[in-house]
């Protein structure tokens, strides 16, 4: 018997595959979330790498060194906290991705999509909170190091607060836009898939 005939015979004899029910097929063809969640995970890693590489490339400006142990210690800890938070979220995104199983039921998938959406939103809120804390810290540092700004003219304090609020809003808007653009598109797709799955559950075969 020819080798290829043996192969063909073996191929035909080994055709035992898991059989999916029609309901499983129906929910599977409406599932696109696995790859979307995978992209959320990949983007979070890219973002984490890029931001940390930038941190290493851009040298620390010695000019902003305060030489006050309390402030320096706060800055150091804040940086570690920020890195730690990013790592935790990368891990959570990975966990979300692994949990989305191809053959899982529509209900399980819906729960997972909602969970992923929540994780992404928390990630965005925490990053915005970090920006806010950093800017508040800069504001209070200015008040602390330049007390003359405040004492010479009482109007200065309002100008300073005004400038601070504008800068803060500007940064938050930029960060918000950045995340909404990157993750928002993926979240929108997840929501669309979620709606399709809800429809499937309402109208089973």
């Amino acid at each position: 018997m020819d080798e290829l005939d043996i192969l063909k015979k073996h191929w035909k004899e080994n055709q035992k595959f898991p059989k999916l029910t029609q309901e499983e097929i129906r929910s599977m063809i409406h599932k696109k979330s696995s790859s979307i969640v995978m992209w959320i995970f990949i983007i979070s890693i890219i973002e984490f790498i890029i931001l940390n590489v930038i941190g290493y490339i851009i040298p620390n400006d010695k000019g902003v060194k305060t030489n006050i142990p309390l402030v320096e210690s706060f800055l150091d800890k804040f940086e570690y906290l920020s890195i730690l938070t990013s790592i935790i979220f990368v891990f959570l995104f990975y966990k979300n991705y692994r949990k989305i199983k191809v053959y899982s039921s529509s209900k399980e998938l819906m729960t997972q999509i909602i969970k992923t959406k929540k994780t992404v939103n928390y990630y965005i809120y925490i990053n915005i909170a970090f920006i806010l804390i950093s800017l508040c810290f800069v504001f209070f540092s200015i008040c602390y190091y330049e007390p003359t700004l405040l004492s010479e003219n009482s109007k200065n304090i309002f100008v300073l607060i005004g400038v601070f609020i504008i800068i803060t809003l500007f940064f938050i808007a930029i960060v918000w836009l950045f995340y909404k653009l990157i993750y928002g598109i993926l979240l929108k797709k997840l929501t669309k898939n979620l709606k399709e799955l809800e429809k499937i559950n309402e109208d089973p075969i």
Binding site: F17, K19, Q22, I25
Partner: peptide, 9 residues
């Protein structure tokens, strides 16, 4: 779905 069901293999 019926067609896919028949042709899963």
């Amino acid at each position: 779905i019926n067609l896919l069901d028949e042709n899963q293999n």
